[in-house]
C-alpha cells in the first residue's frame, strides 16, 4: 500500500519534472529564436534590398558585443548606455562597409560581393583578436535575478532577451510601415527597378538598410552575450544559422526571418535536450540540407525567384 502510494507520488513528481523541463526548453527556444530572429532580420533586409549575402554580418554582431563589453567594463557605463553606444558604433561600421565595399561592387559579378563580405569578416575578427585576444569573456549584466514563475526558475536576462528582441522587432515593423524612409525600404525590397523609376535615392536607402542591420546585430549581441560568452569567433555559428533562417523564411522576407528564427530556436532547444547536446549545432544545417533537397527554393518562397 505504502509502496504503491510512493510510486504514484514518484511518477507524479517525475511527470512534474518532465513538464518543467519541457517548459524550460520552450523558454530556451524562445530565447534563442528571438536572438536568431533579430540577427536574421538584419541579414534579410540587406539581402532583400541590395542582394548582398552579407557574410560579415556575424562579425558586426561580434563587434557589437565587444563595444558593449568595453563600454561597461572599461568605462563603467550602464548596460543600456552600452547598448546604445554599441548600436551606434556598429551602425556606423555597417554604413562604412556599404560605402567603401558593397557600393563599388554593385555592378560586379555575383561572386565578388560575397568574397568582399568574407574579407570584411576576416578583417574584423582578426582586428578584435589582436586587440583583445582570443579568450572568452563574460559580459556583465545588471539583471542577474532568477525569477520564479509558476514553479519555473527563469533568469531575468532571458526574459529581457525575449521582451527586448520582440520590442525591437515591433519598433522596426512600425518604422517600416509608418515612416517615409521605412516604406521606401519596403518598396525597394519588393521591386528594385520600380523603386528606381519613381525616383528613390538608392544610396540613401542602402545606407539606411545597412545602418538598421547594424543596430539589430549590436542590440542582439548585447542582449544575448550576458548568458553566453564574448569571443572573436562568436559570430561564426550565428551568421551561418541566420543564413539558414533566411533561406527557410525566404530571402528578403521580414516575417520569414522572425518565424524562421523561432523554428530554428525551438528545433535547437528541443533537439539539444531530447536528442544530443553534442550535435545541437548541426540541427539547423541538417534541417537546411533536408529542406533544400526537397524544395530548392526554400520553404516560404512564392512564384519565381
Amino acid at each position: 500500500m505504502q509502496d504503491h502510494a510512493n510510486s504514484v507520488a514518484a511518477s507524479q513528481y517525475r511527470g512534474g519534472i518532465a513538464l518543467d523541463l519541457f517548459l524550460q526548453q520552450v523558454l530556451n527556444g524562445l530565447t534563442l529564436g528571438s536572438i536568431y530572429g533579430l540577427v536574421a532580420l538584419g541579414l534579410t533586409l540587406v539581402y532583400g534590398i541590395l542582394h548582398v549575402p552579407n557574410f560579415a554580418h556575424g562579425a558586426l554582431y561580434m563587434v557589437g558585443a565587444y563595444v558593449s563589453y568595453i563600454t561597461m567594463v572599461d568605462f563603467g557605463a550602464n548596460y543600456w548606455i552600452a547598448m546604445i553606444a554599441s548600436a551606434i558604433s556598429v551602425a556606423v561600421l555597417a554604413v562604412l562597409c556599404e560605402r567603401l565595399v558593397f557600393n563599388p561592387l554593385r555592378e560586379a559579378p555575383p561572386i565578388h560581393d560575397k568574397i568582399a563580405a568574407i574579407g570584411i569578416m576576416l578583417f574584423l575578427e582578426a582586428m578584435v583578436q589582436m586587440k583583445f585576444g582570443a579568450e572568452f569573456r563574460r559580459m556583465p549584466t545588471p539583471y542577474t535575478d532568477i525569477l520564479d514563475v509558476a514553479g519555473m526558475t527563469i533568469p531575468a536576462q532571458r526574459v529581457l532577451i525575449i521582451i527586448g528582441a520582440f520590442a525591437l522587432m515591433a519598433v522596426l515593423h512600425l518604422f517600416l510601415k509608418k515612416t517615409m524612409t521605412g516604406s521606401t525600404i519596403v518598396a525597394m525590397a519588393q521591386n528594385r527597378e520600380g523603386a528606381f523609376l519613381v525616383g528613390i535615392d538608392a544610396n540613401r536607402v542602402a545606407m539606411m538598410t545597412f545602418a538598421i542591420s547594424g543596430v539589430l546585430a549590436a542590440v542582439g549581441a548585447t542582449l544575448f552575450a550576458p548568458i553566453n560568452l564574448v569571443y572573436p569567433a562568436m559570430g561564426h555559428l550565428l551568421i551561418m544559422k541566420a543564413f539558414v533562417i533566411i533561406i527557410l523564411g525566404g530571402m528578403g522576407s521580414i516575417p520569414g526571418a522572425i518565424v524562421g528564427g523561432l523554428i530554428i530556436g525551438f528545433a535547437e532547444a528541443f533537439g539539444g535536450f531530447y536528442i544530443s547536446t553534442d550535435y545541437k549545432d548541426i540541427i539547423a544545417f541538417a534541417l537546411l540540407v533536408l529542406i533544400l533537397s526537397v524544395k530548392p527554393t526554400g520553404l516560404f518562397t512564392k512564384g519565381v525567384r
Binding site: A108, D113, G119, M121, L122, A126, M130
Partner: peptide, 18 residues
C-alpha cells in the same frame, strides 16, 4: 593575424584587380 592583411586584400582585389 594574417587576416588583418588578407581581409582588406580580398576587398581591394575584388574591387580594383578582380
Amino acid at each position: 593575424y594574417r587576416m588583418i592583411v588578407f581581409g582588406p586584400l580580398l576587398v581591394v582585389l575584388v574591387i580594383f584587380f578582380p
